[in-house]
Amino acid sequence: MPHSNTATPHWDHRDGRVAAVVAAVVYSLWAVEIILPVGPGVTEGALADPASGFGQFLDSAYRTAAILVVLAAGLGLALGARRPRRWLTVSWWSMAVFGAASLAASLLPGRCVVATDAACTVESVVEGVRGATAVQPVLAVVATLAALLASAALTWDRRRAGERAWVVLAVITLAQAVAAAVVLVLAALVFASSGDGSPGVALGLAERAHLVTVALWLLATGVVPGQWKRARTRHAVS
């Protein structure tokens, strides 16, 4: 929410950092879902039934998280580094694209609770699931690639700035790249097989791994201080 040290409320970098951290927490919830079966003998968990209570909660939570991502990216662009830096700008814009694509996908009908789940959206289309459209896989792929570009650009910016956190960011980016590649390959296999014979457990684990790496990127974006603007009157440590 806007802060006010004077009579006029205003946004500052703390709002963007909090928005990114909260979004990271929400995106990590899918890792919890795997231990919440919807009934005896069912191993897919709540996401196998979007109508379940937890599935509906996740649907609303991810939509909110997408809005928070767009907010964080907007504040990063408006309140970020004093001097424009190309790679940081690329990172913020890519983050905004990720949030916008996630939000748009979450508003479309379909059975996929996680709108950025490329494999689920592809399978829904090829199987002719009611409400599924070809736009959903496109948005999912765009969101996946935008998140990866944002993480990579932020890593390179922090390295050029000499901030030691770039090493951690590089590890997160590498993990995200591997997870994204696996998910997209599995999604392509689902499409090629017309939805039959999907990889099952491997696919579910890959999707969760990818979402965890996205959550780690958002967490790092909120925690790492270098890309956020300092107060004008003093050098504050955030």
Results as ranks from 00 to 15, higher is better:
H3T: 05
N5A: 09
H13K: 07
R14A: 02
R17G: 05
V22S: 11
V25M: 15
V26N: 08
P37E: 01
V38A: 06
G39L: 02
G39Q: 00
P40R: 03
G41Y: 04
D49H: 14
S52R: 02
F54R: 05
A61P: 04
Y62G: 04
A66G: 09
L77A: 07
L77I: 05
W87R: 09
V90Y: 03
A96T: 04
S102H: 15
A104E: 12
S106N: 10
G110C: 10
V114G: 00
V114F: 14
A118V: 15
C120K: 11
V122F: 13
V125P: 13
V126D: 13
V126Q: 10
T133G: 13
A134F: 14
Q136H: 14
L139R: 12
L145K: 03
A150Y: 06
A153V: 00
T155I: 03
T155H: 05
W166E: 01
L169I: 03
V171R: 04
V178G: 01
A180L: 08
V182N: 05
V183E: 13
V190I: 15
F191T: 08
S193G: 10
V201K: 05
G204V: 06
A209K: 06
L211E: 13
V214S: 02
V214M: 12
L216Q: 07
L218A: 02
A220V: 04
G222C: 02
V224S: 04
W228F: 01
K229G: 15
R232I: 01
